[in-house]
Design a protein around this nucleic acid. Sequence first.
RNA 1: GCUCCCAUCGUCUAGCGGUCUAGGACGUCGCCCUCUCACGGCGAAAACAGGGGUUCGAGUCCCCUUGGGAGUACCA
Length: 463
Amino acid sequence: MKVRTRFAPSPTGMLHIGGARTALFSWLFARHHGGEFVLRIEDTDRERSTEAATQVILDGLQWLGLDWDEPPVFQRTRQAEHVLAVEQLLEEGHAYRCYCTKDELDAMRAEQRARGEKPKYDGRCRHRSDRPANVPHVVRFRSPDVGQTIVRDMVLGDVVFDNAELDDLILLRSDGTPTYNLAVVADDAAMGITHVIRGADHLNNTPRQIQLYEALGLPVPKFAHIPLIHGPDGAKMSKRHGAVAVTEYREAGYLPDALVNYLARLGWSHGDQEVFSRAQLIELFDLAQVGRTAARFDQQKLDWLNALYLRQADPASLVAEVRRFLSFPTEDGPPLEHVIAALQERSKNLVELAQGARFFYQPPTSYDEKAVKKHLRAQAWPLVAAFIERVEAMGEDFSGALAHQAIKELCAEAGVGMGKLAQPLRILLSGGPVSPPIDITIELLGREEVLRRVRDGMARLRA
RNA sequence: GCUCCCAUCGUCUAGCGGUCUAGGACGUCGCCCUCUCACGGCGAAAACAGGGGUUCGAGUCCCCUUGGGAGUACCA
């Protein structure tokens, strides 16, 4: 049977980093097996679901390169089927109408809690035979109260639940709308989902869902619950840990391939390998190699991977992405592609890269104070002046290599290291103590701009 | 409280009874390279939560304790 997996987010906010990993694992599993990956938007919570959130989630998946094979199913549109399923259950005696009020239930749970029991519906409406008209009611599942339900999980192994622990869950609310557990089962079955891959927070729902599949006479899919992602402090990932939405990573200048690689390695492994191309991920991914322990999100390792992908990227392929982060025009300066080539191995992300690119297009308006104090002392200026003369003399022959040679010679003549001139020049050209190698920086800026900035800086800074 | 899940360096993990004086990666700390920052190279410190079993032999299997986490809704 062809593998079909799904990702089923509820559109109530952003695409969470944990959700993104769940989607990734589902996608990888499907692609690995030559199967299909589909989406279901669980928008049955009308209060909280928004169209904008749906779009954000879709955009996020797209950005990560997790493509889906069919138009997304909107759960809200399937309500009629859900009601039909409940009616079937009602007819076959697997469900019953419950007339308990909210207050009644609250009181019952409070008592149970007070007695130290697990709060659960006691089934008091199970045997009601009357059917009062015009009284609001819900429909409950008549769950077996003896025996066990075993979840055969592809990650966790067999997990056994005593049926006595599971109470009669609500299938249909008093307003006639279906609840989550019923909708999931009906939809996964209707969509032909063969493998349900989801977060471990759903494990406790699974035995109930299995019971529903069985009561409805539907084939039970395979389940795989993947461990949750925690924040650096071990608690559930939340806003206070920093970025949790994938859009935030996009805005912070991360590359989708790097994020995918990082997320894949969070919980899954293939021996000692750390870096995987997308094709390798698809080829090697296996649920059996997914661990059972919750993983903490480690920004530093993500940074390392992102920097790795950044410096290995073809500069031309980065141009459009880098432009998103630029706040200045680049027409009058060196080709952006060349600037990227000079910067990519010294940047952790696109934001850093964009910052580093600025001085190539905008002359410094001020100079780093500490750097000036350290490198632009009195003895530096004669060297700088000599450098200007050498560049002036170059005329059309100007190049980074020649400038480099000139610096080397001048320093040798003065009996000092190359840094004695390179650092002053760097500050004059870029405004600070950090830039790509001085010859490359000079070459990119060009003869006129180099002369202008050095002269200008000398005028402003020479005591 | 109750149910369920989990437990190897600070972090992600390899390990699927002997090959473990426990391997890799990020991070950290040294050294080298060097015009700055990076990159790169070399090296170091750093873990099997505790206690019982099973076995000739346990990081690997079982139990308990402890510690994390999830669930416990007319949310999904």
